[in-house]
Write a protein that binds this DNA or RNA. Sequence first.
DNA 1: GATGAATGAGCCTTCATTCAT
DNA 2: TATGAATGAAGGCTCATTCAT
Lengths: 217, 217, 217, 217
Amino acid sequence: MQALKKTKQEVVAEFRSAEILEAARRVFARKGFEGASVDEIAEAAGLAKGTVYVYFHSKRELYLAALKQGLAALMTETGRNMDAAPTAAEKIRAFMSTRIRYAEAHRDFFALYQAEFGNIHPACLGRVFKNLYQQQLQAVETALDQGLADHEIRSVPRDAAAFMVCEMTRAWIGRRLLGWSRATADEDVDFLFDLIWKGLAAGSGRARPGDVSWIVH
Amino acid sequence: MQALKKTKQEVVAEFRSAEILEAARRVFARKGFEGASVDEIAEAAGLAKGTVYVYFHSKRELYLAALKQGLAALMTETGRNMDAAPTAAEKIRAFMSTRIRYAEAHRDFFALYQAEFGNIHPACLGRVFKNLYQQQLQAVETALDQGLADHEIRSVPRDAAAFMVCEMTRAWIGRRLLGWSRATADEDVDFLFDLIWKGLAAGSGRARPGDVSWIVH
Amino acid sequence: MQALKKTKQEVVAEFRSAEILEAARRVFARKGFEGASVDEIAEAAGLAKGTVYVYFHSKRELYLAALKQGLAALMTETGRNMDAAPTAAEKIRAFMSTRIRYAEAHRDFFALYQAEFGNIHPACLGRVFKNLYQQQLQAVETALDQGLADHEIRSVPRDAAAFMVCEMTRAWIGRRLLGWSRATADEDVDFLFDLIWKGLAAGSGRARPGDVSWIVH
Amino acid sequence: MQALKKTKQEVVAEFRSAEILEAARRVFARKGFEGASVDEIAEAAGLAKGTVYVYFHSKRELYLAALKQGLAALMTETGRNMDAAPTAAEKIRAFMSTRIRYAEAHRDFFALYQAEFGNIHPACLGRVFKNLYQQQLQAVETALDQGLADHEIRSVPRDAAAFMVCEMTRAWIGRRLLGWSRATADEDVDFLFDLIWKGLAAGSGRARPGDVSWIVH
DNA sequence: GATGAATGAGCCTTCATTCAT
DNA sequence: TATGAATGAAGGCTCATTCAT
C-alpha cells in the first residue's frame, strides 16, 4: 500500500509536470521565452504561480525541459524511422517526413524549436544548443555517409550537406506552421525531398515520374 | 534662410537618426529585442535616453526601423546584382552571393534578420513581416519564372522554390554567423548554389567541373 | 492503558517538540529570524515542513519558543548559582560566570539571545520582550539590593546598575562569540567582573591582588 | 549658466538622496533590514518605488548608505569632542556624551546602529562590519593609551576595555531609546561615566562629590 | 499525527515611457 | 531639440501557511 500510494503520488506528480510542460509549450510558442510570463503559464496550466516553481526551479529550466522533452520524442521517432529505411535517399526522406508529420501533431513544440534553432542568439540555450543540434546533424550525417559509400549521392561535404538537410526541413516546417503551404504533408515531403535530392536544374529526370503532386500552382 | 536652416536641421536629424539606428542594430544584434534596453542603445549612440524617443516613438518602432533600413539596402543591392545577371542560374547565384557578402559586412543587421525571419513569433513584426518577406520572395520568383520559361530549371512550384532559395541562403548565413563554416564566402556561395541547383543525387555532372572548393573535408 | 498510551504520546510529542526546537535554534542562529525558512528548520529536524506546524502554529511562535526555552534553562541555572553565592560581589560574579559558560555550551541559543536582546526592534518579541528581560534584571537587582544593604557596593540606582551588569555581560559574550577574545572563559569572567566592580580609575586596589589574568597584552 | 544649472540639478539630486536616506532610516529603524520593503521606504519618502533605484542600486546599498552616513557624522563629532578633551577621563566622557546626545537627535540612525552592531549576524554587513566597528574602538583605545601612560587609569587590556566602553555606551543608549530611562541625557552620561570609571565597589570616593543626579530612585 | 503539494501574497528589481526643463 | 529624473507596471522568485491524504 505504501508502494501503491507512492506510485499514485508519482503519477500525480508526473501528470502535473506534463500539464505544466504542455502549458509552457503553448505559451512559449505564442510569446517566446522573454515574452512569456510564468504567471501566464501557470494560469494556462490551471495552477497557481507558486506551483510551477514546485516542479521547475526557474523559468529557464521550464523552457528547457519543454524543449528537451519534445526534442527527445522527436529524435527517437526520427531515429526509428530512419533506421527502418534501407537507402540513404529513403533515410533522408524519412528524416523529413517524420519531422513534418511531428510538427503537424506538435505545433507548439515546433514553434519553440523554430525560435530556438532558427536564430543565432545564444541567449537561452548557449552551450546546450550546439549539443542538441549536433545530435540531429549526426543522424543525417550517418545517412549521408552511407549514401556516399553507396555512390547514391554525389561528393558533398557531409557536415554542410547535413546542415542543409536539417535547415531545409526546418524552414519548410516553418512555412507550414505559418500557413503558407496549401499542400498536404505528404505532398510537401515529396516536394522537399525532390528538391534537395535533384536540385533545381533541368535535365535531371524525375525520381518518380508519376509524382505530380507539386505542379506549379 | 529658413529653408536652408530647415535643411540643415534635417541633415542633423537624419544623422542622429542614422546614428541611433546603427547603435540599435548593434545592441539588438547582441541582446535580442527583449534583452536590449533603450538605455543601452542610447548610450551606444552617445545620446541620452530621452533623445531616442525624440526620433522614434517606441522601442519597437526603433527595432523595426533598424530592420527595415537594413533590409532596404540589402534588397536594393540584391536587386541590382540580380538584374545584372543574364540567366536564371546566375540570378539565383547573385541572390545568394549578395546576401552572403552583405551578411559578412553587416553582421549586426543579419543577426536581427535571422532573429526575425528565422522563427515564427509574430511578436514583433506581425503584419509587416509577410510584406517584407514577400518582397524578397518576389525577386527570386521572378528569376525562377525566367528560368522556367527558358527551360533552364525544371518544373517546380515557383513560390515553394523561391521560399527554399531564400531560406537555404538564410540558413547558410546563420551557419557562417555561428562560425560553423571555415570556408571563404566565395566557396560557400559555390557550394550553396551547387546544392540547390543540382541537388544531392548522384549522376548530375558538376556545374563547373573545375570547382573543387568544397571537397569533402 | 488509555492513560499510559496518552503518556507515551506525550513523551513522543515532547521529544518531537524538543527536536524541532533544537533545529530551530541552530537555523535561526545561523540565519536570523527572517533569513531562516521553516523548510530549512524542518529539514534540520529531519521532519517534513507540515510537521513543524503540528507543533508550532507559526514561524514566530517557534522562534519564541526556542528563545524562551533556552532562556528558562539559563535563568534556572543562573538563579541556582547566584543563590549559592553569599555576598553580592560573588552573586554578580556568579551571574556573569554562569552566562559566559552557558553561552559557551549553547552558542546557538546565545546567537538568538544576542539578536533579540541586542537591538531595539520590537519586531519579534514586542510585549513579551520586556517581561523576559525584566526577569533577568530582577535577579541582579536583588543581588544589588543585598550589596547596597551590606554597604558592599556604593550607592547606585539599582535598576540602572542591574541593566549595566546584564548588558556588559551580554556584550562580553558577544565578543566571545565573535571570536574577538583569546582568553579562557575564566579569565574573561575575572576581567569582566573586575571591571564592573572596580571601574577604570586608578587608585582602587585590586580586588584579589594575586589575579593577573588580564595583564595588558 | 551651465554651471549654475548643473549645480541646481546636483542640489536637487542631493536633496532627493538625503530624503530617501532619511526615509530609509525611518523605515529600517522601525522594521529592520529584512522587515522593511523598498516600497515602504519609497512611500515614506513620497516617491515612486522606481525612483529609489535611481539613487541607490539596491536595497542593501541603501541600507549601508544610511548606516554609513550616520556613522560618519557620529564619528566626526565624536572625534572632535574627544580631541578637545585634555585627560583620558574627559575623553571617555566625551565619547559617551557625544553618542548619547547624538542618539537623542538621531533616534532612527541609532536604531539601525543598535540593530547592526548589537548582534552577531554577519548577515548584512559582513566584512564591512568589523572595519566600521574597529574605527570606533580605535578612538577609545587611543584615549585609554593616554590614560595608561598618565597613570590616570589602571592597568587593563586596552582592546577589552575599549570594547566595554563602546558597548556600555551602546547598551545605555539602547536603554534610553527604549524609554527605560527617565533621567536627562546629562544625568545618564554622569551615571554611565561614573560607573565605568569607578566601578561598583564601595570605598571609591565620588568623582564629583556634588553630583547627586543618580540617587537611587 | 505526519506529510508535502498547492497556494498566493509579497518582495526586489528592471525598464519603457513621459515630461518638465 | 536634448536631457535624464521620475514613474509604475510587470516579472521572476520565495516562502509561510493550509489541507487533503
